[in-house]
């Protein structure tokens, strides 16, 4: 994992309300690098974020909408943001009150750096 990606994950976790950020292998759904608050389950987050991205990707392409670039899961307990970066995914878990615009921007930047 390059320093740039590590720095990108740290930028993400500095956004108010972000509980964790990680880079996940999209094919395997396993963590590659992570910056997580205590209590966030790394294996579960990587596996479920990876699986959700893959399922939505399949649904989107089958429906004719093309590949998914990013997804944002909204729930009463917070938000899960996943951005595609080639063979990798950038994942961010945030509180309900997080600054979502910043989360999206930083996750997008991280995905761009991974793709570069």
């Amino acid at each position: 994992m390059t320093d740039a990606v590590r720095a990108a994950l740290q930028r993400l976790t500095r956004v108010k309300g972000v509980r964790g950020a990680m880079v996940v292998d999209a094919e395997a759904g396993v963590p590659v690098a992570s910056e997580l608050e205590t209590g966030v389950q790394e294996t579960a987050l990587a596996a479920l974020a990876g699986s959700l991205f893959r399922r939505t990707q399949d649904a989107s392409t089958a429906s004719g909408f093309g590949r998914v670039r990013s997804l944002q899961l909204e729930s009463a307990g917070g938000h899960l943001f996943v951005a595609g970066a080639g063979a990798l995914l950038v994942v961010a878990l945030a509180d309900p009150a997080a600054q979502l615009g910043l989360v999206r921007m930083e996750a997008g930047r991280a995905a761009g750096e991974l793709n570069a």
Binding site: S60, F65, V68, S70, L71, L73, E74, S75, G77
Partner: peptide, 12 residues
């Protein structure tokens, strides 16, 4: 994460 409220997908 509590109750599901939605998912937004940015597709091509």
């Amino acid at each position: 994460m509590g109750g599901w409220e939605g998912v937004m997908l940015e597709c091509e």
